[in-house]
Structures are given as structure tokens and as C-alpha cells.
């Protein structure tokens, strides 16, 4: 139901923007889809997150293609990228960089860490210690790092795609709510469907596919897309709907806490980008519904928490119980 509008909104629709953008998005999705089979919707969401200028958290069991997705995205967007593998002994300096004494010049020279790139892939972020996590997350929020008293700007654009294992697994440090909030979206890939799985099994190696992903969008196009998405209009009726969604999460017993204003801004930002990706210059309720699970799931927690995924059922309630017309 949620992805239903993605492909169908082509000709004959009202309020369309120039279709070049949506076609580009289409090719990008297809290109990344070659590497990660049968996950078009997740790829779209990931692109939406990046186009909105937010950071992405991919959460799933090991071996579900988290890293493949991040690699493929980096390649398709043509961004310079670095990878950080989260381990329990990873230190902040390993991410941010370090000053090393150069004996020939007798000076300290700064060796930038992997954070200084346009796209940072932070693998298994919940396996690092909270100290390291917070160093990374600070950089995500501020888009700058301060090392040894000197503030250094991070490149523009700056995206972080972090992956994590579900927190129920042993040896992990779950990210607190305040840090989860920094991620615009959290995606879960899930098992591939039968057809995709079969295709996967017929292939030789996965690695080749990732290497074969071609660049589909230039940096300028990504930035232009981001700029344009801010101009997508949201009518009063739509804002009413979003407000009702947000209000639904607040002051209810099932919800441990409601959505923060940052959460509601995230909804609007992503919905606008989604609308633009579908080739519309206005947001419709379906856009909101499409991005809602990935944007708010990690920001919500049920009062009685049985497992780490209680957000999903809450979002489903939101979608089913808040009508588009009051």
C-alpha cells in the first residue's frame, strides 16, 4: 500500500514538476537495485533520506545487505566515502583524526580521520562504546569537528549511513533515544522476497554487482535536488493531517512519549522530498504515509516494551487510525 504511488504517478497528474528529476531518481533506484535485489522501496527511502540532507540508520540482522546498500548508494551518487567499522575498542580519534609529530618538520601535522568525507559508512555503530558513538553523532549534528582546540568543517554534503544490529544481540551498546533522534530515518531491509532470493542465488558473487554500480547523479544534482525539495508546497489540509498524526502520539497511554518537534520537522522534510521524487511539487497524504514508518519508528516507544521494534506497531496504529480528513 505504501509504495503503491511511487511508480504510478507519471503522466496525467496534476502539479507535476519537470520529470527529469524523477527519471533520474528512477534510474538511480534501478542502478542501486541491481546490487540489492527486490528492495526498491528501501532504496527509495534511503535516497529520500539523503536528498533531505539527513543521516540514515540501517538496522537489521547481519548478512541482510546493509553494507551492500550503503556502498551501492555511495557509488550511485558519486560521493567520496569512507568506512568505519565499529568495534568495542574503536576510539573517537580513530574516527575524527589525530595529530602526529612530524620529525622532519618538527611540527604536529593533522591526519584527518575517516569522518572527513562526503559519505561516511559507520558499520555496526552499536558495537562501539558510547564515547565513540557520541563523537560520531556530534559530528553528524554539528557538521564540524573540534580536535585539539581547532574546529574543522566537514565536507558538504555530509551524509552518515550507519548500520546496526538489532539491539537484542549480545555485545552491543544500544543508542539512546537522544542519539537515535539524530537520524532522519531508520530503515529495516528485511528478508528478500522469493523472486529476489532466487535471482540472488543464481548470481555468482554479490561483490561484483556492487562494483558494477555506476554513478547516476552528480554532486550538483544532489544539491539541486535538496534545494528544490524545500520548495515543495504543503497545503493546509495536509498540514492538518500531519498535525493530527503528531497529536495522536502525544498524551496517549500506549505511547511512552510523543513525537518531538524535531520529529515532526523530519516528517515534513522527508515527505516533501518524497513528493519531489514522485515528480510532484506538492505533498499528498500518501507521501507522508510512505515515509512515516522509517521516520518515526525509531522515535517512538511503546509504554510496555516487549521488544526493540515496538515503534513499528505504533506507526501502524497511526496510519490506520488517523484519517486524512478529520
Amino acid at each position: 500500500m505504501l509504495s503503491v504511488n511511487a511508480e504510478k504517478n507519471t503522466a496525467g497528474q496534476v502539479g507535476l514538476v519537470d520529470t527529469k528529476l524523477s527519471q533520474q531518481v528512477q534510474t538511480t533506484v534501478a542502478e542501486v537495485g541491481n546490487a540489492l535485489l527486490g528492495k526498491d522501496h528501501q532504496i527509495r527511502l534511503a535516497l529520500c533520506c539523503l536528498f533531505s540532507g539527513g543521516h540514515l540508520l540501517i538496522e537489521d540482522l547481519p548478512g541482510m545487505g546493509k553494507t551492500t546498500l550503503s556502498y551501492a548508494l555511495a557509488k550511485a551518487l558519486g560521493l567520496s566515502y569512507n568506512r568505519i567499522q565499529g568495534t568495542s575498542d574503536l576510539l573517537p580519534a580513530d574516527i575524527l583524526g589525530i595529530s602526529v609529530f612530524n620529525q622532519t618538520t618538527s611540527e604536529f601535522s593533522f591526519h584527518p580521520g575517516p569522518i572527513f568525507s562526503q559519505l561516511v559508512l559507520a558499520d555496526e555503530i552499536n558495537r562501539t562504546t558510547p564515547k565513540t558513538q557520541s563523537a560520531l553523532l556530534e559530528a553528524m549534528e554539528e557538521r564540524q569537528v573540534t580536535i585539539e582546540g581547532e574546529t574543522r568543517m566537514l565536507p558538504e554534503p555530509f551524509f552518515v549511513i550507519a548500520t546496526q544490529n538489532p539491539v537484542t544481540l549480545a555485545g552491543t551498546y544500544p543508542l539512546p533515544e537522544s542519539q537515535l533522534d539524530r537520524f532522519l530515518m531508520r530503515l529495516r531491509l528485511g528478508y528478500p522476497d522469493q523472486r529476489a532470493e532466487r535471482e540472488l542465488l543464481e548470481m555468482n558473487t554479490e561483490r561484483d554487482k556492487v562494483e558494477a554500480v555506476k554513478q547516476c547523479l552528480s554532486l550538483e544534482e544532489v544539491i539541486a535536488f535538496r534545494r528544490q525539495s524545500a520548495e515543495v508546497s504543503a497545503s493546509d489540509s495536509l498540514l492538518d493531517y500531519v498535525q493530527r498524526l503528531i497529536a495522536f502520539t502525544r498524551g496517549k497511554d500506549e505511547f511512552h512519549f510523543g513525537l518531538s518537534p524535531r520529529g515532526s520537522l523530519a516528517i515534513m522534510r522527508s515527505a516533501k522530498t518524497w513528493a519531489l521524487m514522485c515528480g510532484r511539487n506538492h505533498v499528498v497524504p500518501e507521501d507522508v504515509q510512505a515515509i512515516l514508518p522509517s521516520v518515526v519508528e525509531h522515535r517512538l516507544r511503546a509504554t510496555s516494551e516487549d521488544d526493540g521494534h515496538s515503534g513499528a506497531s505504533l506507526v501502524q496504529r497511526l496510519l490506520n487510525e488517523v484519517d486524512i480528513i478529520e
Partner: peptide, 12 residues
């Protein structure tokens, strides 16, 4: 039309 179903989804 289901509760929460958007107009485009409903049309589809």
C-alpha cells in the same frame, strides 16, 4: 475507503 487511506491510494 479505509481509515487513513489517502485519496490516491484509494483511487488506485
Amino acid at each position: 475507503r479505509r481509515r487513513g487511506e489517502g485519496p490516491i491510494a484509494f483511487k488506485d
